[in-house]
């Protein structure tokens, strides 16, 4: 069975076609990458999969289930997590507090549990806390658990965002520019972390502009340009693809 795929996925904003007829399959247990020039529709593509936009036409299928019409929170419950280009952490709270809520979707306690402080709530709070510590350890931030999120570096914020996504117990994570705005050595660290996720059995799909990193770690790459898929394949295939080179460097590919 195909793990996650999109069929003829199209999104129009008025007359502007942001994503046009994209067929894409994600390979399970691998690092999949989506690249393309600015404005190619990469983030829109992510938003369609994670349920933020509903597509104009086409389908998203996850493990044989059509998730096209599901709201974001239901998609997250199925095991699809994502991060954003800009990391929205709550600066006045500690890193641990920021991450604890990530496991909320796997708990059942409600407002009555909260008011009556039932044993279920206490148990689930403990469970969330343990999960948060576990994922912080995984991303290598356990030493910062008690620090305020406002005082983190850009790279630490990215790692916290990863931790938050991992706290939802996902099977696949979509990372929108995970290495945006961090320096080269930190980029290597983040690449290692993504590899570590895959080793743990989590499928990774990312958008990135840092070609060196992509070419090194990605198993499969899709290239978008003006909302259309212009190429798909292994890194060495993409590297030598005429259309891709023209899309990036300019030229008269379509003329």
């Amino acid at each position: 069975m195909i793990f996650l795929e999109t069929k003829n996925l199209t999104k129009k904003f008025g007359g502007n076609v942001a994503v046009n007829n994209v067929d894409f399959t994600v390979e399970k247990g691998k690092i999949n990458a989506i690249i393309g020039p600015n404005g190619a529709g990469k983030s829109t593509f992510f938003n369609l999969i994670s349920g933020f936009h509903s597509p104009s036409s086409g389908q998203v299928i996850f493990k044989g289930q059509d998730i096209t019409k599901l709201p974001s929170n239901k998609i997250a419950e199925l095991g699809v997590a994502r991060t954003f280009q800009t990391t929205n952490l709550f600066d006045q709270a500690t890193v641990l507090d920021n991450v604890i809520v990530g496991h909320r979707l796997r708990t059942k306690s409600n407002l009555f549990d909260a008011i009556l402080r039932t044993s279920r709530l206490k148990r689930e709070e403990e469970q969330c806390r343990e999960k948060a510590m576990e994922v912080l350890e995984f991303v290598g931030l356990e030493h910062l658990a008690g620090k305020l999120a406002g005082g983190l570096t850009q790279e630490e914020k990215k790692r916290t965002a990863f931790a938050l996504a991992l706290a939802t117990d996902p099977e696949i994570v979509f990372l929108d520019e995970p290495a945006g705005g961090v320096n080269p050595s930190e980029t290597d660290g983040l690449a290692e972390l993504m590899q570590k996720m895959v080793d743990k059995g989590i499928t990774v799909c990312l958008i990135e502009h840092k070609m060196q990193m992509i070419m090194r770690i990605a198993h499969k790459i899709m290239v978008l340009n003006y909302g259309e898929k212009i190429a798909e394949g292994r890194p060495d295939e993409i590297r030598n693809n005429e259309t891709v080179i023209k899309a990036y460097l300019g030229g008269s590919a379509s003329a």
Partner: peptide, 18 residues
Amino acid sequence: RSFIAIRNSEDLALTIGI
């Protein structure tokens, strides 16, 4: 915590399944 997550960023809250 869920409420605070919504205040912090509604989009982010949705993606973590709230």
